[in-house]
Amino acid sequence: MSRVPSPPPPAEMSSGPVAESWCYTQIKVVKFSYMWTINNFSFCREEMGEVIKSSTFSSGANDKLKWCLRVNPKGLDEESKDYLSLYLLLVSCPKSEVRAKFKFSILNAKGEETKAMESQRAYRFVQGKDWGFKKFIRRDFLLDEANGLLPDDKLTLFCEVSVVQDSVNISGQNTMNMVKVPECRLADELGGLWENSRFTDCCLCVAGQEFQAHKAILAARSPVFSAMFEHEMEESKKNRVEINDVEPEVFKEMMCFIYTGKAPNLDKMADDLLAAADKYALERLKVMCEDALCSNLSVENAAEILILADLHSADQLKTQAVDFINYHASDVLETSGWKSMVVSHPHLVAEAYRSLASAQCPFLGPPRKRLKQS
């Protein structure tokens, strides 16, 4: 649940008159999402009104509101027999009622949201009550392989729920002597030191190019640089560091992050930047690179990204790559990247197969709970 924001200063709310007192009302909304995959969808019983329910879910471990999704594969009634019906059901509720908006969509073979439908307002739910769409999607369109909505005969539904909580009022009075504290510009100011090479005390040599930097900042941000300058190493004695395995453009992006906490060109060089972040123990930059690479996972590059993640101990990226390969196994196994990995990294192939087997055979063990970014 997000923290209630402070109200904007009255002088910034309007260029008009300023009242002596004010009130700011925040209506709290808890948002969460749920993904439900139905394997072997074409084998569902086709009687009209037949119901399939998901397991229950909530916004978190401490949330007492429990929900589930309900599907009628062949419609709810005679009117909707040519459609799939989809509903959000409130299973248990400690209150007399709650209000919530919802959005349903289908994830296609690429994991993209399609055929989205959402409620136009927050509906009133009581325990045992459901709301949804009797005519969510035509069955003939859903079952047509050309539309790519049932890869490997799996129907994957994605649901986003927004639950309306209580409202909170914050009130106060205006004073004539309003003090406005300026925003912190530390990142910009440190970035200026790097860009202008002011007050530098060490030189970093990268592929024949020299960059002036500040030992204190490098040591504070990177345990690797800290070790170089702290001990009686040649880098500490000469205040000069030779860097041979990072390209200059990648190095500059890494230094921008060290000084400012930002990497504006990360998406263009996420793979190389991940390697640099791993070498210099820049954990936050490493996770930022993992996130960017996750966003660009595809059938063509899944094997290469899995190898990269394994090489640099990028655990979150590795998990996402394995899950992606499992979901698109029939396509990924035909790529040149996968065939190369079979020869060069057989242990990763074995890991992917083990994960695929456990996903398809849940009876082999208890269900695993899916539970950071600093």
Rank of each mutant, 00 (worst) to 15 (best):
I52K: 03
V51C: 08
K53F: 01
M269W: 10
Q212D: 15
K53H: 04
S236A: 13
Y327V: 11
N239G: 10
K215S: 09
S33T: 06
A219E: 09
Q360Y: 15
A220D: 15
S42L: 03
Q209G: 14
L333K: 06
S295M: 10
V332P: 00
N326H: 08
F43S: 08
D272N: 04
A281Q: 10
K95C: 12
F225N: 00
L149R: 09
F125A: 00
D130A: 03
E20I: 09
V343I: 07
E50K: 02
A100G: 01
V29T: 15
W131V: 01
C68M: 08
A187Q: 07
S336I: 07
Y87K: 01
D166K: 13
H328R: 02
I307L: 02
V179I: 04
V18C: 10
G60R: 08
L186P: 04
K64P: 05
D188E: 10
V29A: 05
R124L: 06
E118G: 11
E234K: 12
N244S: 05
L371K: 15
E334D: 09
L76S: 15
V299K: 09
E145K: 06
E351R: 03
P73Y: 03
L84S: 07
L297T: 11
V98S: 15
G365F: 15
E183S: 08
E351I: 07
N296W: 13
R138M: 10
A357H: 07
S236I: 04
E351V: 04
S54M: 00
T25R: 09
L69P: 00
C361T: 12
S96G: 08
S171Q: 03
R221P: 15
F104I: 11
R139Q: 15
Y83K: 02
R139F: 10
L297Q: 03
M269T: 07
G128Q: 14
P264G: 02
V91E: 15
A270G: 10
I170P: 01
D310K: 10
R124Q: 15
L150M: 04
A146M: 07
I243M: 02
K252R: 04
T175N: 05
K64C: 13
R368L: 12
N239D: 02
M176K: 03
S197G: 15
Y259C: 06
P182D: 06
N108I: 01
F57R: 00
F57Q: 03
F41I: 04
N301I: 06
P151L: 03
G60M: 08
H328K: 12
N40P: 05
S358C: 06
A220E: 14
Q165A: 02
E97W: 10
K134E: 04
V250L: 01
P17K: 15
L86G: 15
G148T: 08
R198C: 15
K66T: 02
L155S: 14
E249R: 04
W194D: 04
S85T: 13
Q26F: 13
M255L: 02
I137S: 05
F257C: 08
D153C: 11
W194N: 06
A109R: 08
V164P: 02
D152P: 08
R124C: 10
A11K: 02
S374M: 10
L333Q: 05
K238C: 01
G75D: 00
I52Y: 05
A220T: 06
I106A: 11
A220R: 15
R45I: 02
P17T: 07
C44H: 03
K64E: 05
P151C: 10
L107M: 14
L76P: 15
S298V: 12
R3C: 12
C23T: 14
K101E: 11
D323Y: 10
Q127T: 11
T37I: 05
P367Y: 04
E12R: 06
L86E: 01
E47K: 03
P248H: 05
T25Y: 14
K64Y: 13
A100I: 10
V322F: 10
S358Y: 03
K268R: 02
A314Y: 04
Q316V: 11
S96T: 11
A122S: 07
A352P: 06
T114I: 04
M341W: 00
L142C: 09
S222L: 13
S197Y: 10
A352N: 13
N39L: 02
V4T: 00
K74N: 08
Q127R: 10
K286M: 06
E113P: 12
V126A: 09
Y83S: 14
L90V: 12
N196C: 15
V342M: 03
C159D: 00
E334S: 10
M13W: 06
P264S: 04
V98Y: 12
K31I: 05
A270S: 04
M48T: 02
R138Y: 01
T156V: 08
K339C: 09
S96M: 11
P366S: 12
L293S: 15
R124K: 02
E304M: 02
A11W: 04
Q373G: 11
S344V: 11
T200V: 12
A227T: 05
P9S: 04
S197K: 15
K81P: 15
C159I: 08
N301H: 05
E12M: 05
E334K: 08
N169T: 02
C203G: 13
Q373W: 15
M35T: 04
D63C: 10
L297D: 00
D63I: 03
S2Q: 07
L88K: 00
P366G: 15
H231M: 15
V98K: 15
I217W: 02
W131N: 01
I307R: 08
L84M: 09
E118A: 01
A350L: 05
D140T: 10
E230A: 14
K134R: 06
K252I: 12
F41N: 08
V206F: 13
S167G: 07
D310A: 02
R198A: 15
N174C: 02
L76C: 15
K134L: 07
H347L: 03
H347F: 05
D153T: 08
C68E: 12
V126D: 11
P264L: 07
M341H: 01
F363Y: 07
D267E: 04
S340Y: 12
P5L: 03
L107A: 14
E145L: 08
F225H: 01
A350T: 11
P182E: 01
D140L: 09
R221F: 15
A352W: 13
R3T: 05
V246A: 01
A213N: 14
V91S: 06
V4E: 15
T114G: 11
S33A: 11
K369E: 04
A122W: 02
C202G: 15
V71Y: 10
F43G: 12
S222R: 00
L107N: 11
I305A: 09
Q209D: 14
S105W: 10
H231V: 14
D323W: 08
A187G: 02
M1P: 00
P346R: 06
Q127V: 09
L311I: 11
E47T: 09
I217Q: 15
H347T: 02
Q26W: 06
E118D: 10
K74S: 14
C23L: 03
S42Y: 04
Q127K: 14
P366C: 10
C205W: 09
T335D: 08
K28C: 08
C203E: 13
I137A: 14
S55W: 12
T260K: 07
S226I: 14
T175E: 09
L311Y: 13
A61W: 07
V349Q: 14
D201W: 00
A122V: 05
Q316F: 01
R185L: 08
R3E: 08
A187H: 04
E253V: 07
Q26T: 10
Y87I: 08
A302T: 08
D130R: 12
E334T: 01
N265G: 04
P10W: 12
L155W: 10
P10D: 04
K134T: 10
M1E: 00
V224Q: 11
V163G: 07
F57V: 03
L84E: 09
I27R: 10
N326V: 01
K103T: 15
K134S: 01
K215F: 12
D144V: 02
P223C: 15
L86N: 13
A281P: 00
S85I: 00
L88R: 00
